[in-house]
C-alpha cells in the first residue's frame, strides 16, 4: 500500500477506499463482482448474496452495491442521510473460522489501526422480513461509530443455510468520512485530487439526492407503482411456475429471472412506502407478499445447479 500514489490512498479518496477493499478481498480469493443492475435496498438483495448464500457450494464474493432507501432522502440537506448510497458487500460461504480477523485486517488495509482505535463488536441481530432471512452478528464500531455489519446467515428466503455464510457489509460513505476526517458526506473527496481536479461526493451526488428526494416524497407516480407491484408479483409467480423442469418440482430452470421480479416488487414497495400511500395494516401485507416471492425464489434456487441440486 505504501507504493500507492497519494490520490489513490483510501484515506484520501472515496474511490481509493473502494479499490483498496476490492484488492484486499480479491487477494483473499473472492470473486469481485460488479453491482447488480437493478434497484435494491441493500447489498444483501444482490443474487450473489441472497441466492448464493443457499445451497452447499462454496462461494466467496465481494462487490460494491448502490443501495436505494427512498425514505432516507433528505433533499441533500442532512450531512449523513442519503436515499442512494454505496455498500461494500462480502459474502463468505462457509464462514471461515478466522472471519473476524479477516475483517479486522481489511480495516487495517484502509488505514484503521486497531492499536490506536477502539474497535468493537456490538450485538446486532439481523432480520429482513421481506427476504424471509435472519442471522446473528454484530455492528462493528470504530470509536463509537458503526462502520460495518457482520452477520452469520442462519436462514435466507425461508431456507436454512447449510453451511452458514458470513456476510460483511461496509457502509462506504461512513467509513470514508471517518478515514478522511470529514463531517459532511458531500465534502468527501471522491477522486483524491486537489484543487481544480478535485471531485467531491457532492459534485457527483448532491443534485441526484435533491431530485430523487422530490421524486420519492412528492412526485413518484403511485398509480404506476401500484400497477408495477402487481405486475412484478404476477411475473415472478409466472416465471417460478414455468421454471420447473418438465412440470415436476425436482429441477428449476428460471430462478434468477423470477428473483429479479421479487427485487423489483421490493423496490416498488419501498417507493410507495416513501410516498406514505400505504397504511400501517397494508404495509404488513405488502411485506408478506414480497416475502412469499422471496421464499418461492429460494425454493426454486436450491433446485438449480448453482443452488446445489
Amino acid at each position: 500500500m505504501q507504493s500507492l500514489p497519494p490520490h489513490m490512498r483510501p484515506e484520501r479518496s472515496f474511490q481509493g477506499l473502494i479499490l483498496t477493499l476490492q484488492r484486499y478481498w480479491a487477494d483473499y480469493g473472492c470473486v469481485i463482482l460488479q453491482p447488480y443492475d437493478m434497484e435494491v435496498g441493500a447489498g444483501t438483495f444482490h443474487p450473489a448474496t441472497t441466492l448464493r448464500a443457499l445451497g452447499p457450494k462454496r462461494w466467496n464474493a465481494a462487490y460494491v452495491q448502490p443501495s436505494r432507501r427512498p425514505k432516507d432522502g433528505r433533499y441533500g440537506e442532512n450531512p449523513n442521510r442519503l436515499q442512494h448510497y454505496y455498500q461494500f458487500q462480502v459474502i463468505l460461504k462457509p464462514s471461515p473460522p478466522d472471519i473476524q480477523d479477516l475483517y479486522l485486517k481489511s480495516l487495517a488495509a484502509i488505514g484503521v489501526d486497531a492499536a490506536l482505535h477502539d474497535v468493537r463488536f456490538v450485538e446486532d441481530d439481523w432480520e429482513s422480513p421481506t427476504l424471509g432471512a435472519w442471522g446473528l452478528g454484530w455492528e462493528c464500531w470504530c470509536d463509537g461509530m458503526e462502520v460495518s455489519q457482520f452477520t452469520y446467515f442462519q436462514q435466507v428466503a425461508g431456507v436454512e443455510c447449510a453451511p452458514v455464510a458470513g456476510e460483511l457489509t461496509y457502509g462506504l460513505e461512513r467509513l470514508a468520512m471517518y478515514v478522511q476526517g470529514v463531517d459532511n458526506v458531500y465534502d468527501l473527496n471522491f477522486n483524491g485530487r486537489d484543487g481544480a481536479e478535485k471531485v467531491t461526493y457532492g459534485d457527483v451526488f448532491l443534485q441526484a439526492e435533491q431530485e430523487y428526494s422530490r421524486h420519492n416524497f412528492e412526485h413518484s407516480d403511485t398509480a404506476m407503482l401500484f400497477e408495477q407491484f402487481k405486475m412484478a408479483e404476477g411475473a415472478c409467480k409466472k416465471y417460478l411456475e414455468a421454471g420447473w423442469k418438465d412440470g415436476k418440482r425436482e429441477a428449476h430452470l428460471m430462478a434468477l429471472p423470477a428473483y429479479d421480479q421479487c427485487i423489483k416488487a421490493s423496490h416498488v414497495f419501498n417507493l410507495l412506502d416513501a410516498r406514505g400511500v400505504i397504511s400501517v395494516t397494508e404495509r404488513q401485507s405488502y411485506i408478506l407478499r414480497v416475502r412469499e416471492l422471496a421464499k418461492a425464489c429460494g425454493e426454486a434456487w436450491v433446485h438449480t445447479e448453482a443452488g446445489g441440486a
Binding site: 462457509p94 464462514s95 473460522p97 442471522g135 452469520y152 442462519q154 443455510c161 447449510a162 453451511p163 452458514v164
Partner: peptide, 11 residues
C-alpha cells in the same frame, strides 16, 4: 438465541 457457523454447519 444461538447459531450455527462454519464448515460444520452444513451437517
Amino acid at each position: 438465541k444461538s447459531m450455527r457457523w462454519g464448515e460444520r454447519s452444513a451437517k
